[in-house]
Design a protein around this nucleic acid. Structure first.
Length: 96
DNA sequence: CAATTGACGGGTG
DNA sequence: GCACCCGCCAATT
């Protein structure tokens, strides 16, 4: 396959995040092969259509802060993710 | 072309 | 915990 675009790589990583787990923008960018492109991940996801099946709600900031706040916190909680004061518990951050 | 903005990250005080 | 700074890249104005 050809060189995956930044978007395709992001979709792949985000879609590969297991349920009950969250990942940071910088982590996604690095796994996608584009370190330091954390901002692009956010831009790409923000341009995603509402019909996307990508678990964008599993993507949080490096601090564990939720970009979408209440809405996303609610979804993460429904998946068993521990959310505290609008942030994800550090224990949930990163991959197994 | 310059400045601004944006689902960011890390460091310093 | 908060304030400030710098780095990184793309799209928009």
């Amino acid at each position: 396959m050809e060189a995956p675009s930044f978007e395709e790589a992001v979709w792949q990583i985000v879609g590969a995040v297991p349920r009950g787990r969250v990942c940071t923008y910088g982590q996604v960018a690095q796994l996608a092969g584009y370190p330091r492109h954390a901002r692009h991940v956010g831009r790409t996801l923000s341009h995603l259509p509402p019909g996307s099946k990508l678990p964008w709600h599993r993507i949080v900031r490096a601090d564990g802060q939720l970009p979408m706040g209440a809405e996303q916190a609610r979804r993460l909680r429904a998946e068993g993710v521990v959310v505290r004061a609008g942030r994800v518990c550090v224990t949930q951050l990163g991959w197994p």
